[in-house]
Every structure is written in C-alpha cells, then in structure tokens.
Design a protein around this nucleic acid. Sequence first.
DNA 1: AGCATTGTTTCACA
DNA 2: TTGTGAAACAATGC
Length: 265
Amino acid sequence: MPELPEAERARQVLDRAAVGRTIARVDDHDPFVCRPHGAGEIDAVLRGATVTAARRRGKHLWLETDAGVDLSLHLGMSGSFRVDEPEAPRGWDRFALEFEDGTRVALRDKRRLGRALLDGARGRLGPDAAAVTRDAFRTRVGGSRAAVKARLLDQSALAGVGNLLADEALWRARIDPRAPGTSLDVESLDRLRVALRASIRAALLPNAGSGAGTFARARRKGYCPRCGSPLSRATVGGRTTYWCPSEQLGAPAPAKGEAAAYRGT
DNA sequence: AGCATTGTTTCACA
DNA sequence: TTGTGAAACAATGC
C-alpha cells in the first residue's frame, strides 16, 4: 500500500535486513516484475555483491551494492517486503534476495505491479515530497495551470504523493483539489506544503497503519471529519477525489469549457 | 457479474 | 507546449 510513507517504511526494512549483507542468490523468476530482465539475469549480476545502502526518493527504492550496480525496487500498488517469512501462497512472492547469512527478503505483491530491476532510471523524478524546499514547492506546484491535485500526483513535479495522501493534504490545507496551481497564492502553497509534510509525518508514526490518515478514513464514510458536511466526489487528475465543499474553497477553477466530471454528491 | 482500485507508462488529442 | 483522459498493465476485493 505504497505512497511515500509506506515506501519509507519499506526502506527502513531494507536498511535493517539487507544493508551490510552479501547476496547469495536472487529469485528473479517473475518476467513481469523483473522486466525487461530475463529470469536469472539479476541473479547473475548481483550474486556475491554486498548491499551498501538502501535509498528512497518518492515511492522509488533502490539498493546500492559494491558491484557498482543498483537494484531498483518499486512496490507498485500492493507490494511489501517480508523478511524471513514462510513463502506466500499463490506465488505472491514475486522476487526475493537471499543472503549468505540466511536472511531472506521477499517482495510480496498480489497484483504484480511492483518492479525489481537493475539500474532503474530516476532522472525524471521530482524532489522528494518529504524533503522538498519551500521555494521548490512553490515553483513546482504553483507554476502550472493544471489542477493542484494533478500537480501533486505528478511524480516528475514532486515525488511520493499518491491519491490518498493528496486528498489528505489538500483537506488539511483547506484547498480545492480542482484549483489550478497558478491560482494559489504563496500563503496557500506554503500551507499546502506544511499540510503535506504533516500528513506524511502522521502516516509514519509507529501506530499509524497504511491509509490511516484522518481524511483517508473519512472518505469511506462520506462526511468531513471537521464540519460534518457531505464530501464531494469527482475525478481530478485522473483519480477519484473527495473533498469538503464547504471548507476546501481555495480558488475554484475558472472552468473554461472543462465541463467538470462530477459524479454523485 | 460488474465495478473500483493506494501506481506507472504510453498514447491520442485538444 | 501543456494538460487531460483513457487504456494497458495484473489481480484482488466488494
């Protein structure tokens, strides 16, 4: 269940279970998860290599090794790392690293949208949403006429924000997800950045499960947790979006010919 | 049965 | 150029 906070937790798992260990064998049999590599290709390159660091940017993870090759990992929509657990049923362990000391780290992913590949490209990834500076945030999110939520979801503008986290941050900052980035004043942009960081921090607390955000839960019930208004729902930035119509006013979209795709409340 | 989906990429089109 | 929507990817859950 990966957005930035889940990816960071996963990185911490890798930090503990993989860094400093030497790879004895790689299970890279799944042609979809490991594409474009063929089965055995990653194993051939990484066998004998020692993992030197576990890194993250946005939702992208990678392990650095002393073989001069990185192993890029992405959790997709349903992936997670499991350490020393019994093999998952139905082949849900799509990829695994087996270390010389017996430790086994598996990428468990029912939906198979996760990825494991050598030297994956990260060039078009924006700054990490948890570390982005105030000025960079103003420019990247406020510098586009696209709906602010679409901007938040654009990994090349800002890395790490997913659908739920975007709704949560916009709700906390009381900004209409449909508002064009360029319509937001500096105060609103700064407030959004603070709200985003607070949402990320909350999701990283030890007792916060995935999707545990205040608003993520409220989405299901359909009412604003602060004022009780029925939430509005529409597709924004290509994803199902919920917001509080009485609080998230920000700056309504000018709606030039864009006949808004309202569906329901 | 049908529909929706916490992610990414690509493509057609305005 | 910029932005959008849909489709594809694969599989599960309601």
